[in-house]
């Protein structure tokens, strides 16, 4: 068991950026909006979090800035998809293209710079629990925040009035409209919060995890998050487990490389992407047998108030 502790602990840390993005996407998709721009939002978050931390010297300001950038850029996605009724798949791809390009363009000058990001802060008492303590409670504050957010999201979606409205706007926007609530406003709000969380996940990579900025540093994590939403059947808790599974594979692959193996690095680097496909096929095969679907019924469909469905 003792051997497992460092690996599990690393799994949590490297799974956290994916978890933030996945949580954000769950909120967005629950509202009926598909945002495939996570990869671009994460990169923008990583870049803006890093540079603002560097300039202000305060990682919390950097993280907050990343969240705001994510909100602003996903507002553009909401404008195109909700207001203009544009194709959500293509708009998401445009966000990813724009975010990748923009972060690389503006970030060129910051490659190789260093910052003092967030450090590790063991939770008093809890960190002393054997096995569980070092795995779960010997991390940076953002990991703890993600625990809180997962619990909060579960409770919010399933047991609050606002959560009921959120589910309704993704399942049956017409009913929400008839109840006198604005579908447009709700979809904007959840798309923006979701985008902010994705950017925060990106900022975790640059401000906390590596404490440096590298172009394209998310390496497909945004896309893995999109897949994890399906894997987690839109449930935050399952999404968290999925994120840690992927974090674990990433951490394991680094360890195998460090241990000096004869397996060539490119083949090891493929693991998370292969796992994504395997997981997605697994979940889809089970879905085919009639186990619950979970996808919001109106996901990806624009809502036109004055038109019949």
């Amino acid at each position: 068991m003792e051997i497992l502790v460092p690996i599990l602990s690393a799994a949590i840390r490297s799974g956290t950026p994916i978890l933030y993005a996945t949580l954000g996407e769950i909120l967005t998709e629950k509202a009926g909006v598909l945002n495939l721009g996570l990869e671009g939002l994460m990169l923008l978050g990583a870049f803006s979090g890093f540079t603002v931390t560097m300039v202000t010297g305060n990682p919390w300001v950097g993280l907050a800035a990343a969240f705001c950038v994510g909100m602003a850029v996903s507002a553009l996605h909401a404008f195109l998809c909700v207001t203009m009724g544009a194709n959500q798949v293509v708009s998401g791809l445009a966000i990813t293209m724009f975010g990748t390009g923009m972060s690389a363009l503006l970030g060129k000058a910051y490659v190789g710079e260093t910052i003092r990001g967030l450090g590790i802060l063991p939770v008093p008492l809890l960190a002393k629990i054997p096995l569980l303590g070092p795995v779960l409670f010997n991390h940076d504050p953002l990991v703890y925040l993600s625990y809180v957010l997962v619990g909060l999201a579960c409770w919010f979606i399933s047991s609050t009035r606002w959560g009921l409205t959120l589910r309704a706007v993704g399942e049956n926007p017409r009913a929400v409209d008839a109840a006198g609530l604005s579908v447009v406003r709700l979809r904007y709000a959840y798309t923006m919060v979701g985008g902010g969380l994705a950017a925060l996940g990106g900022a975790y990579l640059s401000v906390v995890y590596t404490q440096m900025w590298v172009e394209m540093m998310t390496a497909g994590r945004g896309w893995i998050a999109v897949a994890l939403v399906i894997f987690g059947i839109w449930n935050p808790l399952r999404a968290a487990l999925g994120s840690y599974l992927f974090g674990g594979v990433g951490a394991l692959q680094l360890r195998i490389q460090a241990a000096g193996t004869t397996i060539p690095a490119p083949l090891l680097l493929m693991l998370p992407y292969i796992l994504t496909i395997v997981v997605l096929v697994g979940i889809s095969v089970r879905k085919g047998k009639g186990i619950l679907l979970g996808a919001p019924a109106a996901l990806g469909q624009p809502f036109h108030r004055e038109e019949r469905d």
């Binding site: 445009a94 390009g101 923009m102 363009l105 060129k108």
Partner: peptide, 11 residues
């Protein structure tokens, strides 16, 4: 990357 930004804007 500036071309990529332009491509995103066009889209």
């Amino acid at each position: 990357a500036s071309v990529q930004v332009l491509q995103g804007l066009i889209l």
